[in-house]
Structure formats: structure tokens, C-alpha cells
Amino acid sequence: MEQGTVKWFNAEKGSGFIERENGDDVFVHFSAIQGDGFKSLDEGQAVTFDVEEGQRGPQAANVQKA
């Protein structure tokens, strides 16, 4: 798993970007967020995640709040 920080997340659209510790920013969709309840992330929040190849390039998967 990688570690990173939420660069921004739009709760209305359900997507945003995570700033990786090593590498380019990666797209995140709300469906990749693990946990119960409303799936959203806050700017500056620390997260851990896997990276998968999506239709438009790398994207975060199995996102967990650190």
C-alpha cells in the first residue's frame, strides 16, 4: 500500500485526487473509499491506498483513512 495526502475531493461529484509520497497525483473515486457511511475525503487528510490502472490512467483503490 502507498501513503498519501488528499489534494482535493469534491463530495458532490464523488471524486478528487490524492498526492502520492512518491510519484504523480492519483485520481480517487468515492467507490474506492473503504468504510461505512458517507464516503468522502477531506483536503489534507492522510490516507493509505493501492494503485490500479483505470480507464484514464492510474487511480486509487482500497482507500483507507490513515
Rank of each mutant, 00 (worst) to 15 (best):
M1N: 12
M1G: 12
M1F: 11
M1A: 13
E2V: 11
E2R: 09
G4M: 00
G4I: 02
G4P: 00
T5W: 15
V6S: 01
K7L: 05
K7T: 05
W8L: 03
W8A: 03
F9V: 01
F9N: 00
F9A: 00
N10S: 10
N10R: 03
A11N: 10
A11S: 11
A11Y: 11
A11L: 09
A11W: 11
A11G: 08
E12M: 13
E12N: 12
E12Y: 13
E12A: 14
K13N: 09
K13I: 11
K13M: 10
G14M: 02
G14H: 00
S15N: 10
S15Q: 15
S15A: 11
S15M: 15
S15L: 15
G16C: 06
G16H: 00
G16P: 02
F17M: 10
F17R: 04
F17L: 07
I18Q: 03
I18T: 01
I18D: 01
I18W: 03
I18Y: 03
I18S: 02
E19H: 14
E19T: 15
R20K: 06
R20F: 06
R20L: 05
R20C: 07
R20I: 06
E21R: 12
N22C: 13
N22F: 11
N22D: 10
N22M: 09
G23H: 07
G23T: 05
G23E: 06
D24E: 12
D24C: 14
D25S: 10
D25R: 09
V26S: 02
V26M: 05
V26A: 00
F27Q: 03
F27A: 03
F27Y: 10
V28M: 05
V28S: 01
V28T: 04
H29A: 03
H29V: 04
H29Q: 05
H29M: 05
F30C: 07
F30D: 00
S31K: 08
S31T: 11
A32W: 04
A32F: 04
A32K: 07
I33Y: 02
Q34W: 10
Q34Y: 09
G35W: 10
G35D: 08
D36R: 11
D36P: 12
G37S: 06
G37L: 06
G37T: 07
F38N: 06
F38E: 07
F38K: 06
F38R: 07
F38M: 07
K39E: 05
S40I: 09
S40W: 14
S40C: 14
L41W: 04
L41V: 04
E43P: 15
E43H: 14
E43M: 14
G44K: 06
G44S: 04
G44C: 10
G44Q: 04
G44N: 05
Q45E: 13
Q45N: 06
Q45D: 13
A46Q: 12
A46I: 13
A46L: 13
A46H: 14
A46F: 13
A46V: 13
V47L: 03
V47S: 02
V47D: 01
T48I: 11
T48D: 03
F49A: 01
F49W: 02
D50E: 13
D50P: 00
D50A: 11
D50F: 14
V51P: 01
V51G: 00
E52V: 15
E53Q: 13
E53A: 10
E53W: 15
E53T: 11
G54S: 10
G54R: 08
G54Y: 07
R56Y: 15
R56P: 07
R56V: 08
R56M: 10
P58T: 09
P58W: 10
P58S: 08
P58C: 09
Q59H: 09
A60M: 00
A60E: 02
A60G: 03
A60K: 00
A61M: 11
A61I: 14
N62G: 04
N62T: 04
N62A: 04
N62P: 00
N62F: 07
V63I: 06
V63F: 01
V63S: 03
V63L: 05
Q64V: 12
Q64M: 11
K65A: 11
A66P: 07
A66C: 13
